[in-house]
Amino acid sequence: MGIFAAWGRQSATAPASTLDPSLATPGGSMGLPVGFEGVGEALLSDGCPLAACEAAGRESALDGASVDETLASLRTTWQQVRAEDPAYEAVAALVAAWSEATLSVVSHISCEDPMTGLSSLAHVRSTLSTLYRRHRPGGVHPRDSHALVVVDLPRDRHGGDGGGDPIGRAMRMAALGEALRTVYPSAEVVGRLGVNRVAVLAERDARLGVKVRLLRRLVDGVDVRGHDARVWIEGLPASDLASGLMLDELARA
């Protein structure tokens, strides 16, 4: 029977002759691929293994296993317990869970700088695009409802850029990000625009100036080790395209 054996063609219980005696023996070693013990247990107990297949698929993805490796482990498990290839439904459940977990990991990596915990430039760009897409004629335009508050950590007082200490710089950038989150705790995105800059997409309301002054005081308390930090309000342009160009300029500076 092929790897996509029809679920309905399998008997409700596997014939005893197809089961590995050591697996059926209480206390016996499962001897199955790591992470697929639950699948084996479900097959041995004649229960529905789909939930176990989903769990195994997620675990394999999070462990960094490829889809080929994951499918091979499923087939090995099925062969050892049932002496046949896995059913289509089991394969589908496994692959769907593996794909979902993999996409979740990729999305997390692309949205967040792993060293600082700040959102990536791509995520800031996506958030801005969403803001422009949601704008409807007659409504408040994004340039009137929001602004970027930028914190810049350019060159130190001795003319260097601090590039020789990337870990130290990342820690200082993370500290600047925390200062932004303290002043704007409900902000949708606090992101790193480049090596030297952090920004928050803030609401443009009556308290914007007060919050920026508070942020400047907090930034002054950050140990920037000789670096001059600057804070300013960057107004949003009229269009989504122009906002992308603006972010590019801020990232390059």
Rank of each mutant, 00 (worst) to 15 (best):
A93M: 09
A93I: 04
A93L: 04
L94F: 03
L94R: 01
V95N: 05
V95A: 11
V95I: 14
A96V: 09
A96G: 06
A96N: 07
A97P: 08
A97F: 09
W98P: 12
W98L: 06
S99N: 12
E100G: 10
E100M: 08
E100Q: 07
A101N: 09
A101G: 07
A101Y: 04
A101E: 10
T102I: 00
S104Q: 13
S104P: 00
S104M: 09
S104T: 12
V105I: 08
V105R: 02
V105E: 04
V105F: 00
V106M: 09
H108D: 12
H108V: 05
H108F: 07
H108E: 15
I109P: 00
I109K: 10
S110D: 13
S110Q: 14
S110N: 09
C111D: 14
E112P: 00
D113V: 00
D113R: 01
P114R: 02
P114H: 02
P114V: 00
P114D: 00
M115V: 06
M115W: 00
M115I: 00
T116I: 05
T116R: 02
T116S: 06
G117C: 01
G117H: 04
L118F: 06
S119W: 04
S119A: 11
S119K: 06
S120P: 02
S120Q: 03
S120V: 01
L121H: 12
A122R: 14
A122F: 05
H123D: 11
H123N: 12
H123L: 05
R125L: 02
R125S: 15
R125H: 12
R125Q: 14
S126E: 12
S126W: 11
S126A: 14
T127I: 08
S129K: 11
S129W: 01
S129M: 03
S129Q: 13
T130E: 15
T130R: 13
T130Q: 13
T130L: 14
L131F: 05
R133T: 08
R134N: 08
R134D: 14
R134P: 03
R134I: 07
R134H: 10
H135C: 11
R136Q: 13
R136M: 10
R136V: 15
R136A: 13
P137H: 04
P137T: 08
G138W: 05
G138R: 10
G138H: 06
G138K: 10
G139E: 07
V140Y: 01
V140K: 13
V140P: 14
V140I: 12
H141Y: 07
H141I: 01
H141M: 06
P142R: 04
R143L: 07
R143Y: 06
D144W: 01
D144G: 04
S145D: 10
H146R: 15
H146W: 05
H146K: 11
A147E: 03
L148T: 01
V149M: 05
V150W: 02
V151I: 02
V151M: 09
D152W: 05
D152M: 02
P154L: 08
P154M: 05
R155A: 12
R155H: 13
D156E: 11
D156L: 04
R157D: 09
R157Q: 10
H158L: 12
H158G: 04
H158M: 07
G159R: 07
G160N: 12
G160C: 03
D161K: 09
G162T: 12
G162A: 02
G163K: 09
G163M: 12
G163F: 07
G163L: 11
G164N: 07
D165Q: 07
D165N: 13
D165L: 07
P166W: 02
P166T: 03
P166V: 01
I167F: 06
